[in-house]
């Protein structure tokens, strides 16, 4: 028996919208720790890892570990039927091939029930080691989204370079080239507007902009994004979900032939 209640139901909508661009079907794992997911995109270049900790839910009951294969577009269709202020309760049963969503309006005058079919998914789990990164950039998530969108209209790849000057995003395409430098800036009115660059070693890596743009679908989840870079590792683009957990995207770099 599984029962999760989230008063801030819109959060679940945002989570599904953040990842469904990258993966179509995914296996959600439920345990005492929380509601989690790890899924790779179909070309095995990018991976998404989601964690919503049990403490973040208003009610969390998970009698035993359970994995549920879900189609994210179908999930989005169901969640779109919830109002933005609705309370969402998610229920599942061992051995059942469906799960249910219940949406309650804040005033309790409308209650909707949706049942969604589960899917059989062969999920591969990758072991992601803890790592020390050469550089960690924290910046406003909207700024990062803007940069990826702007560069995506000029080139296909972005070179992200971190030096003591700051972080530089560069691209090159048929029409020309572009460089955007963001300097460390903590002199701001609100902490979410700050850009910080933590650098142990300078690092420069190249990534496909298509994936970066897909990661930015998670922007509504967090004011800040954290980009962790090391020359021997995939980049991690992390959106923290306040009091609950995170969505992390991993992307393997491109290398020069």
């Amino acid at each position: 028996m599984l029962e999760l209640r989230l008063v801030q139901g819109s959060l679940l909508k945002k989570v599904v919208d953040a990842i469904r661009d990258l993966v179509n079907d995914a296996s959600f794992d439920c345990s005492a720790t929380g509601f989690s997911l790890q899924a790779m995109d179909s070309s095995h270049v990018a991976l998404v890892a989601l964690l919503l900790r049990s403490e973040g839910f208003d009610h969390y009951r998970c009698d035993r570990n359970i994995s549920m294969g879900m189609n994210l577009n179908n999930m989005a269709k169901m969640l779109r039927c919830a109002g933005n202020d609705d309370i969402i309760t998610f229920k599942g049963d061992d051995g059942s091939d469906t799960v249910s969503f219940m949406f309650e309006s804040p005033t309790q005058d409308k209650i909707s029930d949706f049942e969604m079919k589960l899917m059989d998914i062969d999920s591969e789990r990758l072991g992601i080691p803890e790592a020390k990164y050469q550089a960690i950039v924290r910046m406003p998530s909207t700024e990062f989204a803007r940069i990826c969108k702007d560069l995506g209209s000029i080139g296909d790849t972005v070179v992200i370079s971190v030096t003591k000057e700051g972080v530089k995003f560069s691209t090159r395409g048929d029409i020309g080239s572009a460089n955007i430098v963001c300097r460390q800036n903590t002199d701001v009115d609100k902490p979410e507007q700050a850009t910080t660059v933590e650098m142990n070693d300078p690092v420069s890596l190249t990534f496909a902009l298509r994936y970066m743009n897909s990661f930015t679908k998670a922007t509504p989840l967090s004011n800040q994004v954290t980009i962790s870079l090391s020359s021997e590792l995939p980049v991690v683009v992390e959106y923290k979900i306040a009091e609950m957990g995170y969505v992390r995207f991993y992307l393997a770099p491109k290398i020069e032939e």
Binding site: L47, R125, L126, G127, P234, A252, P253, E257
Partner: peptide, 14 residues
């Protein structure tokens, strides 16, 4: 010319 590396190069299957 760039080649795209795949994730399995870095993260082993468990």
């Amino acid at each position: 010319l760039y080649i795209q590396i795949i994730l399995w190069t870095y993260f082993p299957n468990t």
